[in-house]
């Protein structure tokens, strides 16, 4: 009796079909999508910031994949046009996300270019959006008696800094904000029309 051989052979064949469809074909077609013209590689500060984003699990509340108008009003909300594979050419690991407890961040750099706003919002989201359920990240900041040379002070709306203290951003916070500001995928996508077809025929 070789029923176990047949069982396992059958089982592994089924998994291979699935792997072929969901892993191998995308590997051959979209893994090495050419970056769209206008997409810049991340600087080293932005990459460090991306790591801070990963370390603190921002991805469990924020997606980075605006959907088409036919699907959802993402564009109307100012989250940007629908993203395409070429937008993610420099994104490893991918941070597409599956939750929108908070807004999509794929174009947050265009929507909110102010470093001070980002720093203050990370220190205390409720200083800007009173009903926000985003966690505050006080551990990315330091409360000091006075500002030292080279420090970036965070200008909070009144009443949010501890009395008698100034809030200074850590390197991590500054890198993270650099990454936020780099999230700007407003360049047009039309130029790349023939590209997926070319990729498909490869």
């Amino acid at each position: 009796m070789h029923s176990e051989t047949r069982l396992l052979a059958g089982g592994m064949t089924m998994l291979s079909i699935a792997t072929g469809a969901l892993v191998v074909i995308p590997y051959l077609t979209v893994r090495d999508a050419t970056p769209l013209e206008g997409l810049k590689p991340y600087t080293s500060a932005e990459l460090r910031g991306r790591q801070v984003y990963i370390a603190n699990g921002c991805v469990y509340c924020h997606s980075q994949q605006p959907r088409a108008r036919s699907f959802a009003p993402d564009t109307e909300r100012g989250w940007g046009r629908a993203s395409v594979a070429g937008d993610y050419a420099y994104d490893t690991p991918h941070l597409l996300g599956t939750m929108r407890t908070g807004p999509d961040l794929f174009n947050i750099g265009a929507r909110q270019p102010s470093e001070q706003w980002h720093l203050g919002h990370l220190y205390q989201p409720r200083a800007y959006a009173p009903d926000s359920i985003m966690p505050s990240y006080p551990y990315l900041f330091e409360a000091k008696d006075k500002v030292d040379p080279g420090d970036v002070e965070v200008m909070l709306p009144s009443g949010f800094a501890p009395p008698g203290k100034v809030i200074v951003a850590s390197h991590e916070a500054l890198d993270l904000v650099a990454y936020m500001k780099a999230l700007d995928h407003g360049y047009p996508v039309l130029q790349a029309q023939p590209q997926p077809a070319a990729a498909a025929s490869r």
């Binding site: 995308p26 490893t92 991918h94 597409l96």
Partner: peptide, 12 residues
């Protein structure tokens, strides 16, 4: 794995 392909693999 990389980019969008990595996302497909992720959910596979």
């Amino acid at each position: 794995h990389r980019g969008v392909q990595q996302a497909a693999m992720n959910w596979w």
